[in-house]
Design a protein around this nucleic acid. Structure first.
Lengths: 113, 113
DNA sequence: TAATCATACAACCGGTTGGTTGTATGTAAA
DNA sequence: TTTACATACAACCAACCGGTTGTATGATTA
C-alpha cells in the first residue's frame, strides 16, 4: 500500500548517497547545465557523469530539456521537499516520543519525591 | 578539506536509503529497543537486522547501550538535523538561483516591452 | 558449572553500483 | 554531404550490498 512511497524514498536517498550526484544537483539548481558542461569538471569519463545524471533523473531530482544539440539538466525542487518532509516526520516522531517519556519521568519524579 | 563532511553525508544518505533501516530509526526513536526486539518484526534473519543496526550505528543515526544481556538501540536526532540542513541548503541554492534568474527575466521584460 | 539467551562476526552468494571503453545516433557547422 | 560535436547505450569489471548460515563470545539463570 505504501510501497510506492517507500520506493520513492529508496530512490531519493540512494540518488543523494553519492557526492558527485549531490554536487550535480547543486550545480544544476536554477539555471541548468548540459551534460558535457557538467562532465568537464569531474575526474571521470563523460559516460560516468551521464550515468549519474540518469540516476538523478530516475529519482526525479533532475529533468533534461533538449536545446539544440545539447541536453540541459535542471534540478527539480519537489523531490527535495518530499525528502525533507520525510525527515521532518522522522524527527517529529523522535521529539514526540522523547517528550512522552520525559512526561512519564516527570510524573515519576513527582510521585517518587 | 570538506571530504569528511562528504563522508558523513554519504554515510547518512546511504544508511537511510533502505526501507528497513528507515523503519528501524522510526521504531527506536525515543524509547529504544533491543536488537532482538527489532528483529522479531522483520521477515529476515537476526543477523540481517543486526547488520542494518550496525550500518545505522556507523552513520551515527543510532547508538547502543548495554542493559543486562540486551543491547538497546536508540535513535540520535543530531544526524537527522544535519541531513535536513544539507537539504535545506540545497533547496536554498535552488530558490536563490531561480530568484536571480527571475529577476533577470523581469529586467529583460521591462527593457523589452 | 552447565545450559540458555542475546549478540557479534566471519564466510559465502547473487544482484547492484560506479567506473571503464567502445560503438551508434542525432544535431550543427563546413 | 562530410565533418565534428553532444549524447546515448551496451558490455565488461571490481567492489559493495543485502541477505543467508554457522560459529564464537558474553551475560543470565538453573
Amino acid at each position: 500500500m505504501k510501497g510506492l512511497l517507500d520506493d520513492e524514498a529508496d530512490a531519493l536517498f540512494q540518488a543523494l548517497a553519492d557526492r558527485t550526484r549531490r554536487d550535480i544537483v547543486r550545480r544544476v539548481a536554477g539555471e541548468g547545465l548540459s551534460v558535457s558542461d557538467l562532465a568537464a569538471d569531474y575526474d571521470m569519463s563523460f559516460a560516468a557523469v551521464q550515468k549519474h545524471v540518469a540516476v538523478l533523473e530516475r529519482a526525479g531530482l533532475v529533468t533534461k530539456r533538449r536545446v539544440g544539440k545539447r541536453q540541459i539538466a535542471h534540478a527539480e525542487v519537489g523531490p527535495l521537499r518530499t525528502i525533507r518532509s520525510m525527515l521532518a516526520e522522522l524527527e517529529d516522531q523522535w521529539v514526540e516520543r522523547v517528550q512522552r517519556i520525559d512526561d512519564l519521568l516527570a510524573g515519576d519524579e513527582q510521585a517518587g519525591s
